[in-house]
Nucleic acid binder design. Structure first.
Lengths: 361, 361
DNA sequence: CACTGGCACTCAAAGTCATTGAGTGCTAAA
DNA sequence: TTTAGCACTCAATGACTTTGAGTGCCAGTG
């Protein structure tokens, strides 16, 4: 017993008539499958609603008014807009729970490829990124955490010219980070050795994130009971954490897949997109927004707010270390992507990466 | 007094009549400038030879028979072939000696941008690559030397699980390299410390390349007079040098410029090219051939032997550290590039990079 | 001879035109 | 509310023509 048409028309997306929802769903599914505007005849045949094309045309007119679909030109079928995709993804999509075999395959592949990278999170991320791209045939993306994590292994200080010191920190099994510290005065080799010893005995084995977050503060509070050496060592450690590793900020893989999509075959658009990948700033800014939200995040087309991503969607999920969200991974592809497949893949991969990054039990 | 036509026709490139050379030169120059097939009328007007189009057509027919030019289709003008470009580049091109101002500008820019990267050759190479790309508006390329160089600063060994050891080597001011060594047995912390001390006192300040090349051998020869500790330390150093840094092999910059060239606007070609950039293998193989030859090397179109580079030319020059050729830099662009500008730029940049890499006097 | 004028010929590019077919919106009737 | 019917739109396709830049070849000329 459909409600009066007027009401449906004016109502918000959530209140769209069941018929309209059903039609939008089939439309989006068709369009994702074939990439061609979908006409009323096709919908009449395939929606399973037993409505004539004419009726469907009426409903399509409504959907168009709501900004869910649009026609590329008068005599073409309809194509989903970003808003249409959005509704589809939020409410209409039936995410296949990623059938058991596929999970297993993914898991096996990831673990296999990750194995040699164990203990070196950088290459773990590279691997994950190219895995994502391989499985989805789109561009894979993994951010490199700004926040440190992993088990403090050992630190080493090397005096440079002036008041500068090279700090080398080994984390986990075999991850080597290094940064340059600017200090208030020059320190001798043996002083630096003392600092290193002090820090190493205190911090070895502890999680770097925790050291940064709490331990340093605690120690600082007991300052009165410290000698100068300890205080200086703590200051150095602090500075070390301040200067974020100036490393790359994300690992991109399989960008070239994006060249295959008809909707991006415009060379100029493509160029802008690739330049954005190189500049990293915009993309990174977008990804930053995804760390916060737990779970899968999706930006569809213009939603992202970045013009270069106009015809792209970004599907991301954060990954965690020690129960804490530290980074994001995901894929970039055309708006017209198989969301029902991509979403669980991204979700799964984030979980697998988290598992691989977390200290072995 | 031109020699008989027959003879010219059959003769090798070197013996081409002056007229033919002259015409080929103008043709190539025109084509590089406008990117359009050059017809006999144009050549008649612009070659400065005062010949009728008809005569020129005859000569063009000869050049075509020699494989120097070809017509895209019957009623188009002529376009240089790889062989035509080759002759042009080898014999006909007048390389502007890169006027003083431009040298200065380049030099200033390079030095300016390199300054913050001093003491860290990795980022020096990244900078150089993007500088090359910026100046030429094509893709810039700098290989990362396989051979080590720079001044040994300090080494540090960290025991890992089993018989594995993490070696951290600091070179120059602040370049940190690390690799994993597989040893015959497990060594204790203090043993490793001893090894490190021994190596550091022996090698500090010396050139890593030389250590590898000669010093290790020398020490080995005096083996009888060594104690076990020294021998083990030497073995470790050797292993450290064996395992080449598994780093990236070259730094690419500004690939996106290549998307702007009409001759590469075919999306599919472009994709193949970018995939080759990612795989690195082929490109690297090509570059390897350039380290040997001192001076600027040029691969034109199909000459490279790699299908993806069919419509590209690669201009390279090796750079040196301590008088020794260690790496290559260059640019990749369309065959139709301004060689007379690019060649001296690449040459110059190689020299500047060499200068920046060499120990300060 | 080497060169040139002339001519027939070729071919890509661009424009015109008609045809097709998938699709629309609107209206009037069930 | 739904539908059949109808007039209309418009991208795509293909056949056709025109244009113009270019060629190859030939026969004539200094």
């Amino acid at each position: 017993m459909p409600r009066p048409r007027q009401e449906n028309l004016r109502s918000t997306e959530g209140q769209l008539s069941d018929r309209a929802r059903q039609l939008l769903t089939t439309l989006v599914e068709r369009y994702i499958r074939d990439g061609e505007p979908v006409g009323s005849r096709t919908l009449s045949r395939d929606s399973g609603l037993d409505l004539s094309p004419a009726t469907i045309r009426n409903i399509m007119a409504d959907l168009e008014e709501l900004g869910m679909v649009r026609s590329p030109h008068t005599s073409a079928g309809r194509v989903p807009t970003a808003r249409g995709y959005r509704l589809f993804v939020d409410a209409l999509l039936t995410v296949k729970p990623l059938d058991g075999r596929e999970v297993a395959r993914l898991q096996r592949e990831l673990l296999e490829k990750m194995e040699p990278a164990r203990g070196d999170s950088q290459s773990l991320m590279t691997t994950t990124s190219s895995l994502l791209s391989g499985v989805t045939q789109m561009a894979g993306l993994v951010t490199i955490p700004k926040r440190d994590f992993g088990a403090w292994r050992q630190v080493e200080f090397l005096p440079l010219s002036d008041n500068r010191v090279l700090a080398i920190l080994v984390v986990n099994e075999r991850e080597v980070q290094n940064r340059i510290l600017e200090l208030d005065r020059a320190y001798s080799q043996s002083e630096l050795q003392q600092f290193a010893n002090y820090l190493n005995t205190h911090f070895a084995g502890r999680d770097v994130g925790q050291i940064r977050a709490s331990l340093l503060k605690e120690l600082r509070n007991t300052r009165e009971s410290m000698n100068d050496m300890m205080a200086a060592a703590i200051t150095m450690a602090e500075q070390m954490f301040e200067r974020a590793p100036p490393d790359e900020d994300y690992v991109l893989a399989g960008e070239t897949h994006l060249m295959e999509f008809a909707e991006l075959s415009n060379v100029d658009k493509l160029r802008q997109l690739f330049e954005a990948f190189n500049k990293k700033r915009e993309i990174l800014h977008l990804l930053d927004q995804c760390v916060a939200a737990d779970g899968v995040q999706i930006f569809i087309g213009e939603e992202s707010g970045y013009q270069v991503l106009d015809e792209c969607s970004v599907v991301t999920a954060p990954y965690r270390v020690n129960e804490e969200l530290v980074g994001v991974l995901g894929v970039i592809g055309p708006t017209r992507m198989a969301y029902e497949r991509v979403i669980p893949i991204v979700d799964m991969t984030a979980k697998l990466l988290s598992a691989a990054l977390n200290p072995r039990k």
